[in-house]
């Protein structure tokens, strides 16, 4: 399902695609979370790259409704908690790079928001994570893209092409698809020139600032968003 490798200070996590997160497949979320935590704790790793082996970074998918009692227990543990997959990426002690080709559905866009740096192929597209995912973090989006653009993404539920994503600051570089892996390698190489202690302490400083901005509190609100969203669906009262 997920494989990891380490070479020359760079840890690589590979999956066929990260679409299972969009469908809230818990075993996948746990496996990805564990891979990120393991590489974050590895003293031979400075950079973690999230890569896919097939066409799309995260294929389309919609999560099924979750019962309220499960939201507060198992769902919270796997998708919203401080120990869950997204916060493991967002608050990793190492620099996390997402390498995006093809479509990036809701969960893929959340991984992009949680990662430090993103390289995208020209064919990449980025779906709004706010339409389907209660755990989507608006504070991260506002910090990344600026408030007005994040609001537009949220309200319109739009999908951005790569060229727009780079212009609004959601991704760092857009390159032809056949140059994607090489560009990511070069980006990772530029990061690994920093001392390991420097990277770790820089990420700690980053965590303090993100916390100050309310990124963690926004993750805490995911349970409430989920209950509101799925309470209606469970009762069959939501329209449109």
């Amino acid at each position: 399902m997920i494989t990891t490798s380490v070479d020359n200070w760079c840890g690589v996590i590979e999956a066929a695609d990260y679409g299972p997160l969009s469908r809230h497949e818990a075993p996948f979320a746990r496996a990805l979370r564990q891979a990120v935590v393991d590489l974050s704790d590895d003293d031979h790793v400075k950079v973690i790259v999230l890569r896919t082996t097939h066409g799309d970074f995260a294929g389309a998918g919609t999560p099924p409704p979750v019962d309220t009692t499960e939201v507060l227990t198992t769902w919270h543990r796997d998708f919203a908690a401080s120990s869950a997959v997204y916060q493991a990426v967002c608050f990793s002690k190492k620099v996390v790079v997402t390498e995006v080709a093809g479509h990036c559905s809701a969960a893929g866009s959340m991984l992009v928001l949680c990662s430090d740096l993103t390289v995208a192929a020209e064919n990449a597209t980025f779906a709004s994570p706010f339409t389907d995912l209660p755990e989507a973090n608006f504070v991260l989006a506002a910090l990344t893209m600026r408030l007005n653009r994040a609001k537009s993404w949220l309200l319109r539920g739009s999908t951005m092409p790569a060229a727009e994503a780079v212009s609004v600051g959601l991704v760092n570089q857009v390159v032809p698809a056949d140059e994607l892996a090489a560009t990511t390698r070069e980006l990772a190489r530029s990061v690994t020139g920093m001392p390991l202690d420097g990277i770790t302490m820089s990420k700690m400083l980053l965590q303090a600032v993100l916390d100050g901005h309310g990124v963690g509190r926004e993750f805490d609100l995911a349970d409430h968003y989920a209950i509101h969203r799925w309470a209606g669906l469970n009762a069959g009262t939501v329209q449109g």
């Binding site: 740096l117 760092n172 980006l187 920093m194 990277i199």
Partner: peptide, 9 residues
């Protein structure tokens, strides 16, 4: 993300 480019790259 642009800030992180300046920080790390």
């Amino acid at each position: 993300k642009r800030a992180k480019e300046l920080m790390f790259c």
